[in-house]
Design a protein around this nucleic acid. Sequence first.
DNA 1: GTACTCGCCTGGAGCGTGCTAGTAGAGCGC
DNA 2: GCGCTCTACTAGCACGCTCCAGGCGAGTAC
Lengths: 341, 341
Amino acid sequence: METSGKQRPTMADVAEKAGVSRALVSIVFRDQPGASPQTRDRVLRVADEIGYRPDSAARLLARGRSRTLGVMFTVRQPFHADLVEGIYPEAERLGYDVLLSATAQGRGEAKAVEALLGHRCEAVVLLGPGAQPADIDALGHRTVAVSVGRRVPHARVDSVHTAEGKGVRQAMEHLVELGHRGIVHIDGGRGPGSAERRRAYRAAMRRHGLEPELRVIPGEHTEQSGIDAGRLLLDERDHGRPLPTAVLAGNDRCAMGLLMTLAQAGVEVPRDLSVVGYDDSHLSHLMPIGLTTVRQDAVLMAEYAVRFAVERLENPVAEPREAVLDPKLTVRGTSGPPPGG
Amino acid sequence: METSGKQRPTMADVAEKAGVSRALVSIVFRDQPGASPQTRDRVLRVADEIGYRPDSAARLLARGRSRTLGVMFTVRQPFHADLVEGIYPEAERLGYDVLLSATAQGRGEAKAVEALLGHRCEAVVLLGPGAQPADIDALGHRTVAVSVGRRVPHARVDSVHTAEGKGVRQAMEHLVELGHRGIVHIDGGRGPGSAERRRAYRAAMRRHGLEPELRVIPGEHTEQSGIDAGRLLLDERDHGRPLPTAVLAGNDRCAMGLLMTLAQAGVEVPRDLSVVGYDDSHLSHLMPIGLTTVRQDAVLMAEYAVRFAVERLENPVAEPREAVLDPKLTVRGTSGPPPGG
DNA sequence: GTACTCGCCTGGAGCGTGCTAGTAGAGCGC
DNA sequence: GCGCTCTACTAGCACGCTCCAGGCGAGTAC
């Protein structure tokens, strides 16, 4: 079997071998009317035989449109993985191709987006973008863009996110009902949704008359942040300050870091301390007792994002839209009544 | 500011505005000799002004080569994230573009690879492929392919993996030296490298005269698998069978699941039980006490993979190559002397 | 002077598709 | 016979770029 060095077969090859014109092959492959069933069959058979596969570059160049959606994401965010898994099927359903571009060390968001645009993506879906609102707005002017997990108020982009306030409120109600008063929040810094979550936490504490107990530990959406916060709390305990009875983490990753630190220090969850996360990424199910968390429906968010992008492509002048999904508290094993309660 | 409906600017636009030919613009953008510094400047300035960005589809179509590497990966594998982060810079260094295609629910490896080939990737890098060797071989005949983390003995693909046996051996020496005898292995099922790791575990147990203690718990490379194994062990303990004193997990994810289960059950690591992982993915650093694990150098593996792909593109008839990297045991906090030792 | 090289630049032929306009042939009504 | 429609098909340009074969002017060697 001859192997390499071969040119990949083109439409012309198929056309010649099937004894038809290139245009006819094109028609067959686009599933358009204008070819008899017999010819259709023959063309497809020949194509399969010689291993022909339409060249998306040429195709893309020829028709004006690429029908491709670019997705910018961060490799290490489990929640992004959930979103990506949701984006693929919905895009396929609407006849769009998906191109992924990851941010990474030495490859910032700008670079990742450039790569997507260079590949002629018609729209860009940004998963939890950390860029300045002004930059996002600028991008929205250059192309169709959708921000997922972060609202960008006055920018020319659609956005999909959850009602952060509502989610936090549910979590706080849950904890307060269990009897908690000393509830600490580890926040997500400049991460998507953090500001809203922080605000809602503060409001909930005030509403329940717990203002004296209000405390926000600065953090970010990483495991390390949870670990750091955990160490801080344990350290303080060793110096006389009692542990809070519950912690509302910035997201699941942060909660996981915290849980590990606590476990290693012999603090039993939820007996000694309750922990609530945010996202309901796949991580949450992994804990043997399960992480109590605020569920953001990744699949639904992904579907909205794709649909927004596609619809805006069809009607570019529409006003920016915003989908605000209802989060839902998912009570699992890491929350319970406070020690003395 | 006018926004949408605009055609994206082309080379011709830049050429006209700069008062030169299209070919000259092309030269400037490819950074090739044949343009004076002044002209170069002017062209670049004009291009920037009108927001020109070379169209990679057209570019790709025009030169025969796409200079694009396709990467198939699994969104949820942290180690893949590490690899992807290593692939980007190396590919860029060698002048290649990177396209990612994820496997996901309802999107198998075949589909992911098809997408890459449709986009004219010259080579495909498979991260931990689970496909049949025959299929991988077939792919290797159709295009340049590199398998990472899994050797595919008689196939026409290059591969990069670590000397699994060596890594396991180091881990086992470490545990035995600490005084462990009851060492259990949770294996990785059909996951990449699992067979070799399992074999090396068995050999090591025999070599140290621990054959009676030899035990392999079937698993896979997921957190869930670690959780299940942990539950199994705890369950057995409750029915009288003593816990092993050490567990060699199939990979880090598995180890993490196990650790969580243990922590929740009050089993203290490493006092009551030592745990060793495999991969040294970012997870490992996250534990407060750190996970003892066998380090696979993701960056180095990524570099090899990219280089193999590129070199084979230049010389397609070369014999398949195999890079076997030395893993290195990284002792952190989850391993220590056995309870009675 | 001629002959040559060298640096800077242009014209035009592709690359593999999509798509529009058009053709050949069959069928039908008159 | 003619004119019409309909199906099955084809010719050829366009897409935005690369790259090759030059061209033009200035410098250099003889």
